[in-house]
Design a protein around this nucleic acid. Structure first.
Lengths: 228, 228
DNA sequence: TCAAAAGTGTTTGGGTTACACCCATGG
DNA sequence: CCATGGGTGTAACCCAAACACTTTTGA
């Protein structure tokens, strides 16, 4: 078994965790407690542990739990980057980058292993911040780009929302991500056409004003049924 | 330096090399010469060699050269997949998957290290072939999907074409990838609008019939200049 | 009865599709 | 002069943005 003898890269996972704060798309950063780049802000991340993680997704959950104190229900792989001298801790560094969406109201993050503090930074600001450790500014740029593209394609950001939500909340979330207002009527027509949300009959969100219909994410089966 | 002590995954690169044969999108497969999956067809690939490769892109080129006898001018990362027991050669296998486009007329592939024979298979057929080694059928599915999406977005497949090409050749290539005819007029209007190709004034392709204007891929600068 | 937010309808314009047509060339 | 492929024009249609409007509720 000759293949086993090759040295393998120092393999890590990096997390671009995003949320919405005050109508703005924000990214989570942690202050590094150790070298390299000690004291600088970076994306939270951690080493792939082949003894602990059964696959990449499980690794993401473990890293999130260790570093942020919470699992990440909605995440997606963005890319893998690797080169010699990428990370001073090893000869050859490989990072697999993930983007996650979390609703801040439901999920609390708290600094865990090897992180001093966490902060939320406006996405566009973070993307331009060349003070960040490693190449994390560039990773954030692609995370923001990918997330905006998803919205343009009406691949909706359910990760940012609770299970049940109003169309107003959904629209406000999309507007926050894109950074521009959307037309209510057009937005709803698109939702209707593509059958991406499903009304929860009888359930409404009450508030100071007119109650709003609650919706949930449409499942594959819902879409299939209605298109027959 | 405690991080170095963790065992790292058996890291490989897999190549979904695509081309056009007889107006059909095809994928390159190699017959495996060794265990695991000896004798079965698979995507060509190889181990990441941190002693040889300075980064992931360089690794792709080395693997392509070793296995196929040619570098790959146009390639793009698709995803990383990894889990325990993915590959019997190691406890934990990680594969970074790339898609490449090559023009068959210009580039010759020939079976190299650890490969018995190479064959070109129709993409849709390969995507459905559950006899392939590992999870390669699923990797091919996403490669095909991504490639078709690129064409829909007019992200053109210059990798399939020589440096200089006619609009007819370009359209035929797009049709081959999508598997359906395109309207010449609409196609050309889109090219015009988005300024993705540039005529080579004075250069024409002569043939049995009317000569055709030759074009080349428009550079970033071309687009910037004209939009001022 | 007013403010605020939910929800509906209609018009308009841009962009794409589909189709028809003309042009240039070698045999 | 015909077959073939390059190249152009136009009408129809679809989609989506923009805007105006009605409805429903709590205060």
């Amino acid at each position: 078994m000759p293949s086993k003898q090759y040295p393998m890269p120092f393999t890590r996972l990096e997390l671009a965790v995003m949320s919405i704060v005050d109508g703005q798309l924000v990214v989570l950063q942690g202050k590094r407690i150790e070298a390299p780049h000690k004291g600088r802000w970076a994306l939270p991340g951690g080493v792939l542990r082949i003894d602990l993680d059964k696959d990449l997704d499980a690794a993401v959950q473990r890293v999130a739990t260790e570093r942020l104190g919470t699992p990440l229900p909605f995440f997606r792989q963005l890319s893998a980057v690797g080169s010699r001298n990428r990370d001073p801790r090893a000869e050859w560094g490989l990072s697999i980058v993930y983007r996650a969406l979390i609703p801040l109201d439901d999920i609390e993050v708290s600094a865990g292993k090897r992180i001093e503090t966490l902060r939320w930074v406006a996405a566009d600001e973070a993307a331009a911040d060349e003070q960040l450790a490693f190449d994390h500014a560039s990773l954030i740029r692609t995370a923001v780009e990918v997330t905006r593209d998803e919205i343009e394609r009406m691949d909706l950001p359910f990760g940012f929302l609770p299970d049940k939500f109003t169309l107003g909340e959904l629209q406000a979330t999309c507007e926050a991500i894109l950074g521009r207002p959307l037309d209510k009527s057009s937005f709803r027509r698109k939702l209707e056409d593509r059958q991406v949300v499903l009304p929860l009959v009888g359930e409404v969100r009450t508030g100071p004003f007119r109650p709003a219909q609650l919706f949930q994410q449409a499942t594959m089966e819902d879409v299939a049924c209605n298109s027959i």
